[in-house]
Amino acid sequence: MALNIQIIPVTPYAQNCTLLWDDETHEAVLTDTGGEAEYLWQLVQDKGLKLKEIWLTHGHLDHVGGVVKMRELSNNVPVIGPHEEDLFLLEDLPNKTREYAPQGFEFSPSFLPTRWLNEGEQVHLGKYVFDIMHIPGHTPGHIVFYCASEKLLIGGDVLFKESVGRTDFPRSSTEDLLHGIKTKLYTLPDDVLVIAGHRDPTTIGHEKQHNPYVRG
């Protein structure tokens, strides 16, 4: 039995929504449901999976813009995360999706998650345990999901392949972002797979050697 992973780019920004599912229980979660909810829901149905939860790393529209529609399709599946410091982004979602409509984003109402997440908490998918790390900087409430047994990190927009998340947004902080990467992510094993919010996956070891913004 295994933890299955499918990365599904959605939204005009090709944001990496990730479908995770447990072979044994057929339970699944979707991370960062930024848009194209009907397509994602059909994918879950076609695989015969039971969508347990939606997990969110942070509150930017390309990561959360499809959540309300997905909840309508899935009979109000619970939404878990991000950290409560990103509340202001979820509250502003109607304005942001209107603003970015010319770029192809669908309108979304605001919403509240079923549960905020904090540093040191855990979430579960079948037998798989994911630890929560709070890594502000890109947004103040950004979190990541780390499964030690599978050496897997759902990293959102913190660490990219040879890059890092932007810090030119309201309440962003370059200092906080780089500190979180150095003190939390770069302490993980080198062979941990990092599924970033955009573009290709990477590993912790690769970034420690090759990331020009923050070396290990």
Rank of each mutant, 00 (worst) to 15 (best):
K184C: 15
R115T: 13
N118Q: 10
L112C: 12
E106W: 14
K151A: 09
D176G: 15
G126Y: 02
P140R: 01
K184H: 14
E150A: 08
L185Y: 04
S110Y: 08
I132K: 02
P170A: 02
R98Y: 12
D131K: 10
P102H: 02
E91I: 12
G205T: 06
N75H: 12
H83G: 09
R115H: 12
V144Y: 02
T187H: 10
K161Q: 10
Q122I: 14
T97Q: 05
L93I: 07
D157R: 00
V158K: 02
T97A: 05
E150L: 07
T187M: 11
S149L: 07
F160W: 04
Y100M: 11
L89M: 13
G156R: 01
D131F: 09
F160Q: 03
L185T: 05
I204T: 03
Q122S: 13
Q103G: 14
S163Q: 15
R115D: 14
F145M: 00
L177H: 07
K96T: 09
L188W: 04
G180E: 03
E121N: 06
P102E: 04
H198Y: 14
A101T: 10
P136F: 04
Q103A: 15
G120A: 06
G141T: 03
P113G: 01
R171E: 13
G197I: 06
S108T: 11
F145W: 00
G180M: 05
T97N: 05
F88S: 09
R199A: 15
A196L: 07
D176W: 14
V158F: 03
